[in-house]
Every structure is written in structure tokens, then in C-alpha cells.
């Protein structure tokens, strides 16, 4: 095992790639990732690699063998709580991102408390009703928080149908808008990751102060 670089070396390396001013802003940002599955685990890994200062991971579920083709877990983590397992993986990938893991089911009553004052919230749930409930609650109760949600990444449709749209000032939506896993579509890791990358990219652009899509 190689030695882990110091925090200062880590920051310098990121600043070299992303620019010092932006790196400071990224390091000062907290992001809540609601759902740690195909979208959330990929969003979290990308944001941790980019040097986001604080990540809050929330998921009630455990790792299943069928998750491994698109989610950032390992074969020896089957059966573990997703939020805790992802926190473990992030600690190895990006040791200077502070990660809080909640193994809880999010609902209207605990969204504000569990997202813990995050600057930006990523909706990364699986079920359409849960997505809508989270988005409605955040837009109603946390109007000053940025929100990046997703709809439509199932199936084997073209990569280029996945887009990012700024719905209102602080609310972005990624995905193709129509491909529903409930319609018995397949689920390809590449397409789920494309959507997760759109969400992570929207987060980094918000941090950079670039609000167009």
C-alpha cells in the first residue's frame, strides 16, 4: 500500500486540475446525496474525487448482487448498508472529504433534518413517487437550497437523449424525462452513469457559479 498524501498535497493536486479559486469553493461546499444506488453512488464518487468538502449520504437499503453492475460497491460488500459501505469506499478514494452516512428512509418528515443544511441536494432515488415527494418537500421547505434531480435513465436509448434542464432558478433536472424502469426497460450501467455524471456536473457548475445548462 502506498502512503496517503497529506491534505495540503491533495488540495494542490486538485487545484492544479480544477483551478485554485474553484477548488476552494468546492472544498467549502456540502452536498446531500439522497439515495446511494445507481445514481447516488456514482454522484458521490465523482464529487468526492472533485474534492467536495462534505457529503451527506442517505439510503435505507443494503447492497444486493444485482446492484453491482452499476453501483460503486464491491463484491465483498453485499448485504452491507449502502450508505455506510459507500462511506467506507469514499474514505479510500478521497480521504479528505468529510462523509456522514444515514441508514434511514427519507420521507417528508425527516428530509430537512437529515439533509443537514447542505448547500446542494441531489435527488437520486429509484421510485418516481419518492422522487416527487423529495423534490416537492425541498422546493417547499428549503427554497434557498439548490436541487439537482433525475428522471429517465433506464433502457438502452441513445446517450445523447440524457440532458440537464434548469427548470427554475435553483432546480435542475437531468435525464431523458421518459424512460421508466416500470415499463420493463433494461438498465445499463453506462446510461445510469451518464445521468449521474450530468447531476454531478450540474453540482460542480452551480459551485462554479455557472448556472446555464
Amino acid at each position: 500500500m502506498g502512503a496517503i498524501p497529506s491534505k495540503e498535497e491533495w488540495f494542490r493536486a486538485l487545484a492544479k486540475k480544477q483551478g485554485e479559486a474553484l477548488q476552494k469553493r468546492i472544498a467549502d461546499t456540502s452536498v446531500a446525496v439522497c439515495g446511494c444506488g445507481g445514481l447516488g453512488s456514482n454522484i458521490a464518487v465523482t464529487l468526492a474525487r472533485a474534492g467536495v468538502g462534505r457529503l451527506i449520504l442517505i439510503d435505507f437499503d443494503t447492497v444486493d448482487i444485482t446492484n453491482l453492475h452499476r453501483q460503486q460497491f464491491k463484491a465483498n460488500q453485499i448485504g452491507l448498508a449502502k450508505a455506510a459501505a459507500l462511506k467506507e469506499n469514499l474514505a479510500e478514494i478521497a480521504p479528505y472529504t468529510a462523509v456522514t452516512a444515514h441508514t434511514r428512509r427519507l420521507d417528508e418528515s425527516n428530509i430537512v433534518a437529515l439533509t443537514g443544511g447542505a448547500d446542494i441536494i441531489c435527488e437520486a432515488f429509484d421510485k418516481a413517487e419518492n422522487k416527487a415527494a423529495l423534490v416537492n418537500t425541498v422546493l417547499t421547505e428549503l427554497p434557498d437550497t439548490w436541487l439537482v434531480a433525475a428522471a429517465g435513465m433506464a433502457g438502452d436509448g441513445p446517450a445523447n437523449d440524457i440532458i440537464t434542464r434548469r427548470v427554475t432558478k435553483r432546480f435542475y433536472l437531468c435525464g431523458d424525462g421518459v424512460s421508466d424502469i416500470g415499463d420493463s426497460l433494461c438498465l445499463l450501467p453506462s446510461r445510469v452513469q451518464l445521468c449521474a455524471a450530468h447531476q454531478a456536473h450540474a453540482v460542480l457548475r452551480i459551485i462554479a457559479g455557472a448556472y446555464d445548462c
Binding site: 429509484d126 416537492n136 433525475a150 428522471a151 416500470g182 445510469v192
Partner: peptide, 27 residues
């Protein structure tokens, strides 16, 4: 945002700009 509980009492008016975001499953 229009709160869910207000859908029944919200009457659409001339000149309103409405954005309906529809969620589908998968993630």
C-alpha cells in the same frame, strides 16, 4: 412551487406560466 395539498384549490389563470415536472422510475 405549488404544494400538493393545494392542487385542488389552485385555479389556473390567463397568463399563468406552469411547469409540470413528471418523474419516472429508475436510479
Amino acid at each position: 412551487i405549488v404544494a400538493k395539498k393545494d392542487y385542488g384549490s389552485t385555479v389556473l389563470r390567463d397568463g399563468d406560466n406552469i411547469e409540470i415536472v413528471r418523474f419516472v422510475g429508475g436510479g
